[in-house]
Design a protein around this nucleic acid. Structure first.
Lengths: 197, 197
DNA sequence: AAAAACCTTGACTGGTTGGTCAGGTCTGTT
DNA sequence: AACAGACCTGACCAACCAGTCAAGGTTTTT
């Protein structure tokens, strides 16, 4: 049974840990930083979680589920261009709403994905292969431009996640104005032009 | 005066440090890792460089110069579409030849760019603003599609650097085959369709 | 109200980290 | 060969790190 206090403190800790792991990576983050961010003492952190690794693992598990969902939501029965545009829009929305999750993921991949190897090589790969086959079918039927489906998927990832992962850079170049301002119409135009048969 | 041995060992250290910093970030990297990678003892590392910070600083300085160059090479007098396609191709080539430099940069930005703030807000911003104005002029003259010049530049960064920064992910999904296989024709088609007036 | 269960922390530990230093080895020059 | 300067390292240090624990405080249940 989980108490009221447990629920509150676990949430605080995971939120603080997301912040710190996303910015510093697993090795670069310290429990002291996370504890300070959460407003708790370090021993108290370790009362709720077994170890630094355990906090990180839980964060990753939450992340991975939400990472597959948008791609899975592509409907084989739907209109090809609308489905892909919808996927792009959903991914962009995630960069807007969950930039820290995006940076956490980016940090893991940059470090060579040691903790994600299984997930990527199994779950993600299987889903991407499936969606790539679907896109190839759509292209063969003439309902979509003939594009390499893998690079199409990678390009959606690259373009949408860039706004979360490189937020600091974009902010400095655009001097404070919302980094995502104008991104959606730009990407819509880009992918509409790319996908028109 | 620098001796033969100095030249060799400094090079070894910077090469090893690039490897380790790119994979672990500044905080996550340790001098022991760098020393092991370089095949030198830790005190020997500190014979050639004053501190961990000094190694990182030198690496960043080398990086920043090469980071501005391709964008600077865009010729105002050239053909608009050819100039932008050339810039994209140059950036893609850099992802192929210098993936570790790309990951080092990505790591810094992910961490909030604390060590790059000045460079980005001054040098990079000035150059981007200049190039964005040039692209806007080209668009106004009808020699280019009317696209947001900032998002155009960001999209080139996102799409080309993705292949270096997310190399581990792409490798696992494409099972060992060269992650950049097919990338160039895909990106050429994408930007040709985007930029056609 | 008092027991039981839950929550919190100061003080600590063993291991790691960036960095120092005295003293030794190697290299090029005369 | 012998000297100067450059190069290298084992042993060490203080600060920091993840994690432990005994003791005390708070909340919930009875």
């Amino acid at each position: 049974m989980t108490t009221r206090i447990q629920k509150r403190n676990r949430k605080r800790i995971l939120d603080a840990a997301l912040e710190v792991f996303a910015a510093q990576g697993f090795r670069g983050a310290t429990l002291d930083q996370i504890a300070a961010e959460a407003g708790l003492s370090k021993p108290n952190l370790l009362y709720y979680f077994d170890s630094k690794e355990a906090i990180h693992r839980l964060l990753m598990e939450d992340l991975l589920a939400s990472w597959l969902e948008p791609l899975r939501a592509i409907e084989p029965a739907g209109d090809p261009r609308a489905e892909i545009m919808g996927y792009m829009r959903r991914k962009l929305q995630m960069s807007r709403e969950f930039p820290r999750e995006s940076r956490l993921f980016a940090n893991e991949i940059l470090q060579g994905a040691p903790r994600l190897e299984d997930f990527i090589a199994r779950d993600l790969k299987a889903l991407v292969d499936d969606r790539a086959a679907l896109i190839a079918r759509w292209s063969a039927e003439g309902r979509l431009a003939a594009v390499d489906p893998y690079h199409l998927i990678f390009s959606i990832w690259a373009l949408t996640q860039h706004y979360a992962d490189f937020d600091a850079q974009i902010r400095l170049i655009r001097e404070g104005s919302d980094p995502l301002e104008g991104a959606e119409p730009f990407l819509e135009r880009l992918f509409e032009r790319l996908l028109a048969p």
